[in-house]
Write a protein that binds this DNA or RNA. Structure first.
Lengths: 191, 191
DNA sequence: TCCCAACCGGGATACCCATCCCGATTATAG
DNA sequence: CTATAATCGGGATGGGTATCCCGGTTGGGA
């Protein structure tokens, strides 16, 4: 196909753009203009959009690596720990990573370009699985759904610039079975 | 000052724009273009920007009423209920209102125009006070700060379109002193 | 009823941004 | 060293939004 090797300078520029983009998107979110990425990388906007025809392509490439790591971690936890421990550990990891990386937080919150959900990078899918297993094992409240977990994690990620232990603690304690809640009298409510 | 009464048609248009804006911002958030508000209100864009010179003016006017109600509710709770009950009830109210109104959620999350914080409409201030009193009364974990609470509530508000009891339950249980292990009455579930 | 200031509509203007294009530059094969 | 195709920079283009402006319309007091 188009697997022709890039010229040396082109390869260098591409890598530099990717590096700068990763840093900027992590710090300021995906809303940063492409021309700003180009400026900081010391290249023209044309160079950026030649290597990444669309802004989503650039964002996607930046997110791929991060999402893959998370999926790997989820899989590792799933086989190394019991369901409850695995689920809570993964939630804590997602929150920490999301709080440290705005772009990733936006992606996980669904306010980004939506590159996850693709086979090998399906973080939401992994989270769903871990949740289901933790609930089956009786470690997590049964009335909780994935959207609930997603919303709670999204909130925790917004706690940028402060210690994360408190919010993670609150959420994990609250999710745990046996925390006092009135589930007993409202089993299958749907609003 | 310029308190000359508006002409009848002008007053009618202003009210209609405000009404439509409130509805649209609540449903779709403050990012909706002004010209869209004008279109749905059946007026020209000029009419909107004459009554509300800036988009922030329009958004602000819409939010004022909502914020005032919330502040009133906070004050009422503060004097009618014990600190713990008041705090949890207010948190539940904020989450419910925020989940039902995107513009308000954006405002409370700080991703809007920031009209609150003004004396009589200072919802964050009231929340802070209720939190401090609840902690002093020993009803809420001592390691929690206002930004933690804000982040958690922001997350819950993102749970649009589903039942809110689970997320509110998780957060309130998690915030409660001695959380993660039992206890609970049914506070914090006011509608 | 008549008249004019207040009001209306929506086109004009001024940004901002992503993406495309093309003349100038440069890596590198021969 | 030279030729040439790949690459570069940044201006041009198209689309979107907020705000301003002005010729036409109308409410309501005389």
């Amino acid at each position: 196909m188009d697997e022709r090797p890039l010229r040396a300078d082109a390869r260098r520029n591409r890598a530099r753009v990717l590096e700068v983009a990763a840093q900027v998107f992590a710090t300021e979110g995906v809303a940063v203009p492409v021309h700003e990425i180009a400026r900081r990388a010391g290249v023209g906007t044309g160079t950026v959009s030649r290597h990444f025809p669309t802004k989503d392509d650039l964002v996607g490439e930046v997110l791929f690596a991060l999402l893959r790591n998370l999926v790997d971690e989820a899989d590792a936890l799933a086989e190394r720990a019991d369901p409850g421990t695995a689920f809570f550990a993964f939630v804590a990891t997602l929150v920490r990573v999301g709080a440290a990386n705005r772009a990733l937080a936006q992606e996980l919150a669904g306010t980004c370009c939506g590159v996850d959900g693709r086979a090998e990078f399906d973080v939401p899918g992994r989270t769903r699985e871990l949740l289901a297993q933790a609930q089956q094992a009786g470690a997590v409240r049964a009335d909780i759904t994935y959207p609930d977990v997603k919303a709670l994690m999204t909130g925790c990620m917004a706690r940028r610039g402060g210690p994360l232990e408190p919010v993670i603690g609150v959420v994990c304690d609250g999710l745990r079975t046996g925390a006092g809640h009135r589930r007993t009298q409202r089993e299958g409510t749907t609003t």
